[in-house]
Amino acid sequence: MDNTQQSQWRKAMSEFKTLKKRRWSKRQKKEALWGLLFVSPFIIGFLGFMFLPMLFSFVGSFTNYNVTNRMDFIGLNNFRRMFTQDELFTTSLYNTAYYVLFNVPLTTAGGVFLAVLLNRQIRGIRVFRTIFYLPSILSGVAVYVLWMQLLSPSSGLVNTILSWVGISGPAWLFDPQWTKPALILMRMWSVGGAMLLYLATLQNVPRQLYESAEVDGAGSFKKFLNITLPMITPIIFYDVVTSTIGAFQIFQEAYVMTEGGTGGPANSLLFYNLHMWNQAFVARNMGYAMAMSMILFIIVLVLTFINLKLAPRWVHY
C-alpha cells in the first residue's frame, strides 16, 4: 500500500506542476475567478476571524496584555511562568490529556460499532438511525444540565439503573476520581455525528468483496475485520484527527458543570481551555492566556503531524 500511495502522490504532484506551467485560456481564467469567488466567504472569514486573531495571539503571548490598558513586551516570561510556576497549568494539561486519551478512541469505536449495527437491512432501520443520530443535534447547556441530573448520585437515572443490577454507583460529578469518566461517558451520547459518516462509508464498501469472502467461508467477524475495517480506514483516520483536535478544545462542558468554571472537585475538571479562559477573563491575564493558546496550538500541531505520519501504516486508500 505504501508504494501505491507514494506513486499516486507523485502523479498528483507532476500533474500539479504541469498545471502551473500551462498557459490559461480566457475561459479557464474566468472559471478560476468564479471558483475563487465561491470560496471567498471562507477565505475572508478565515483571514478575518482566524488568521488575524491567531497572529495577534502570537504577538500578545510575549506581552502582559490585559485587554484594556496594558500591553508591554515581557519576552518569554509568560512561557517561563507556565512551565516553572503555574501549578494549575500542569493540572489542566493532565486533565485534558486524560480526556483526549479516552474520549477519542471511545467515540471512534462507538461510532464504528453503531454504524455497523445500523447498516443492517432490517425493518424500521431508518427510524433507528434517526433515533441514534438525534442526540448529536442537541447540544449546549441544556444537555449538560440534563446530564447533571442523570448523574445525580442518589436520584439520577444512571445510578438508579446501576442499582437494579446491584451496583452502587459512584458520586460521579462530586467525586474527583469519577468526574472525568462521567464527562467521557456523557460525550458518548453525541457519537451520532461520527456514526453518520461511518454509515455513509459502509454503504460504499463494494458488495462483491463480501460475496467472495462468503464463498471462501468467512464468518461475519472475519468479514468485518478483513473487509469492512480496512475499507473505512480513511474515514476513521479523518475522524481520529478531527476528534483529537476537538477533544483538546473541551471547555463548555466543564464550564457549565463546575459552577462558573471553578474546575470541579480537586480541580479534576480544570481543562486546558478552562484554565486559559480563567486566566483571560477572571484574572485578566490575556497575554498569559494567549501564550497558553500558542502552546496548545503547538501540541495539537505536533499530534496531527504524528497522526499524518503514522497514517500510511494503517490507512488504506
Partner: peptide, 17 residues
C-alpha cells in the same frame, strides 16, 4: 493574586479527600 482561589480550593479538596 486575582486567580488565587483555585489554588486554595485544590488544597482544601485534598484535605476533604
Amino acid at each position: 493574586a486575582p486567580d488565587y482561589i483555585s489554588l486554595v480550593n485544590t488544597q482544601i479538596d485534598a484535605a476533604f479527600l
